[in-house]
């Protein structure tokens, strides 16, 4: 380090450092920049005093303003609850049919239902409620446990195979896995089911399986395979298939007897939220009584 070095061209001192023959001019900082800098220092000192700032061994300084993001979130949530309180009270006092018949109430319920559906139901049933393989489509007119407002509301409340005391539950035997039927019989039965749902099937195999169907399946799915909403037994004659419509999917279902699980939302949601959700699902499924 040598002493101050003057740049010949500008006549300004340099910083005294040199990098490969390049020296930096020691110009003063712009005054406006310095002022802003000092103002920032002053501001930060004030900030330390009024806002939570310094960490300590047992927590941190609180600041004179007592600012706390946690408290603000709690307050915001409380505000939200209060805002919703009025609408919630109305929903609680109205029947499902009343909610659906009143345009204003319905609009409110649809809003609430949409947000609740997006947060809780969309994970399995899809954001639009169109379902997926193994997760029922909530937009069409095919319902395992009934599609009226009350049916939907009840299914939501108790869930399906949820462990709730009154849960909706149906159990299709795993005919193949549990050795109740052999492979040939399952193959024949598959042809039969494809045939009654209007698909292309081996007529001879289907004819062979007719007594088998009456013996093993008709108790739940009905003599003609039209299903039974009371037992949650699907209609086998329509075009809708929860686990797929091809031969492999149907024989796989006869083999393993799968069934999905839906939580009992009655334990998680307030009554008014459940109502709103039921109205939302019912409305999006067409909203018509059968």
């Amino acid at each position: 380090m040598s002493g101050p070095h003057k740049d010949e061209i500008t006549g300004t001192d340099t910083t005294g450092h040199e990098w490969d023959g390049i020296r930096e001019l020691d110009n003063p900082l712009p005054r406006w920049w310095l002022w802003v800098f000092y103002a920032c220092i002053l501001f930060s000192i004030g900030y330390w005093v009024v806002m939570p700032a310094w960490p300590g061994l047992a927590g941190h300084t609180r600041g004179l303003l007592g600012q706390s993001d946690r408290a603000e979130v709690a307050k915001a949530l409380k505000d939200l609850e209060r805002q919703r309180g009025k609408g919630a009270a109305v929903l609680r006092g109205a029947s499902l049919q009343q909610i659906e018949a009143d345009p204003q109430l319905q609009a409110y319920a649809l809003q609430v239902g949409q947000s609740v559906f997006g947060d809780n139901c969309a994970t399995c049933h899809g954001a639009g409620g169109a379902g997926a393989r193994g997760y029922p489509n909530l937009r069409d007119d095919v319902w395992l446990w009934g599609g009226s407002l009350e049916d939907i509301h009840h299914t939501l409340t108790v869930g399906v195979r949820s462990g709730h005391a009154d849960t909706r539950v149906s159990q299709m035997p795993a005919f193949g896995r549990d050795g109740m039927l052999d492979q040939a019989k399952i193959a024949d039965l598959t042809e039969y089911v494809v045939a009654i749902s209007g698909g292309k099937a081996d007529r001879a195999a289907a004819a062979r399986a007719a007594p088998l169907f009456a013996e093993q399946c008709a108790s739940c799915h009905g003599a003609t395979g039209q299903g039974d909403v009371k037992q949650g037994a699907p209609d086998l004659t329509d075009g809708e298939w929860l686990y797929g419509s091809d031969h492999a999917a149907i024989s796989g279902q006869i083999h393993a007897g799968r069934g999905g699980v839906m939580p009992a939302w009655g334990q998680r949601f307030s009554p008014e939220t459940l109502k709103a959700l039921a109205v939302y699902i019912h409305a999006n499924a067409g909203g018509q009584d059968k």
């Binding site: 899809g126 639009g128 409620g129 169109a130 937009r139 069409d140 007119d141």
Partner: peptide
């Protein structure tokens, strides 16, 4: 848009 259409039991189609 989600779903764009829904097919019903009797083969008819419903749009919302």
């Amino acid at each position: 848009r989600n779903p764009t259409f829904v097919r019903l039991r009797d083969g008819s189609v419903r749009d919302g």
